Simulated scan of single mutants.
Amino acid sequence: MTNDETRGGQYADVNGVHLYYEVHGTGGPLVLLHGGLGSGEMFGPVLPALTEHHQVILPDLQGHGRTADVDRPLDVRLMADDVAALVDHLDLGPVDVVGYSLGGGVGLQAAIRHPATVRRLVAACAHIRRDALYPQMLAQQAQVGADAVEFMKQTPMYELYQRVAPHPEDFARLLDKIGASMALDFDFSDGVRGLQVPTLVLAADADMAPPSHYVEVFALLGGGQRDGGWDGSGRPDGGHALAILPGLTHYDLFASPLFAATSLAFLAG
């Protein structure tokens, strides 16, 4: 392992990826997974709340932040394998996983593919079908690629990448790989339907997909089928839950105190 002098992080070599991660706080282990074109730093506003009762492990996913890209596609399933390998590397045992956007998709796949690794899961802003997105979002995603570098230079994502990435010149490559990933059709309904890990489906009320999609995901987990009952006996088997957070969008939910509080309440359940 080597230390990152700027934030006290370390690297673990897992699945051919030199994976950067940080550890903050003490308590039950919680792996916190960032969104696309971001890094663990994006959770700065909510990290103090999350570390009050948890040891938070903050990885930078493949090609993001301080983790250099490798010669493979950006695929949530492969990145989920990286997360599971990191948990094994750190000898943490079952961990709570909280993922946002891309990280939410990675978290879902970690729970599907490595259920013994995940104790409870919060999947935030993570759609499970490509066609669940609003048509204008699909049109915007189709524009993501190396040609968008000049436009992206005006964004915090570009500034972050230039500041921390091992190879800042690879930003165009990252955009190409993310664009290629978003262009692929997918439907993870079958995997979600078989989830054995207690899962909170969480989204903003003005997210990239309509609230009805996240209700659909909850339904795959047995939610929303009947009255919950005075004693809660009518809640879905498996401990699953749904939260649509008010007054938020896909682009500010990760920094909201509501996101932190709702996630923590579910993890403590």
Rank of each mutant, 00 (worst) to 15 (best):
S101R: 07
I178F: 05
P211E: 00
Q162M: 11
M157S: 08
D170H: 14
V192Y: 01
F188K: 00
R163K: 15
P168F: 13
S101A: 13
T117F: 01
M182D: 05
I128E: 00
Q162Y: 02
P211S: 00
A183N: 14
V164H: 09
P135W: 04
A204H: 02
Y134L: 03
T155I: 10
Y100T: 09
P94M: 02
Q136M: 05
A183L: 12
E150K: 08
C125D: 13
Q162G: 03
L195S: 10
D187H: 03
E159C: 00
D176L: 08
V144I: 15
A111Q: 06
L90S: 07
G194F: 01
R129N: 02
A209C: 09
L92R: 08
A172P: 01
V144E: 02
C125M: 06
L175F: 03
L174C: 07
P115T: 03
R173C: 13
Q136V: 07
V106L: 01
G99M: 04
M182R: 10
P135L: 05
V118C: 06
L175G: 00
E159F: 04
H89Y: 10
D131W: 05
D207V: 08
A123V: 07
V98Y: 00
Y100W: 15
A132Q: 12
E159G: 08
V118M: 05
R173Q: 15
S189T: 15
S212W: 01
Q109A: 09
V98W: 01
R130C: 04
M182C: 03
D88T: 13
V98K: 00
P94H: 03
V149W: 04
G145C: 07
L92P: 07
D190L: 10
L86N: 11
P166R: 15
A110L: 14
M157G: 02
L184Q: 15
R193S: 13
E169P: 01
I128Y: 01
Q109V: 00
G107V: 12
E150Q: 14
D176T: 13
A172W: 02
G93A: 09
D91F: 01
A110E: 13
P115Q: 08
R129Y: 02
Y100Q: 11
R120C: 11
V164T: 10
P166Y: 15
V97A: 12
Y161E: 02
L92F: 12
R119W: 00
D176I: 12
A110D: 11
D190S: 13
V201T: 05
L184P: 02
A206C: 05
D147M: 10
L174K: 03
A180G: 15
Y161R: 06
D205P: 07
A209D: 02
P211I: 00
G99Y: 03
H89R: 12
D91P: 01
Y161K: 06
K177A: 11
R129D: 01
A84I: 08
G104S: 05
V149C: 08
V83D: 11
A132N: 13
I178L: 11
L133V: 03
A110M: 15
Q196C: 08
S212T: 12
P210V: 04
D82M: 07
Y158F: 12
P198M: 06
G103T: 05
D190K: 08
A110N: 12
V144S: 04
F171C: 01
A116L: 11
F151T: 14
G179Q: 09
G103I: 05
Q154T: 14
V87A: 14
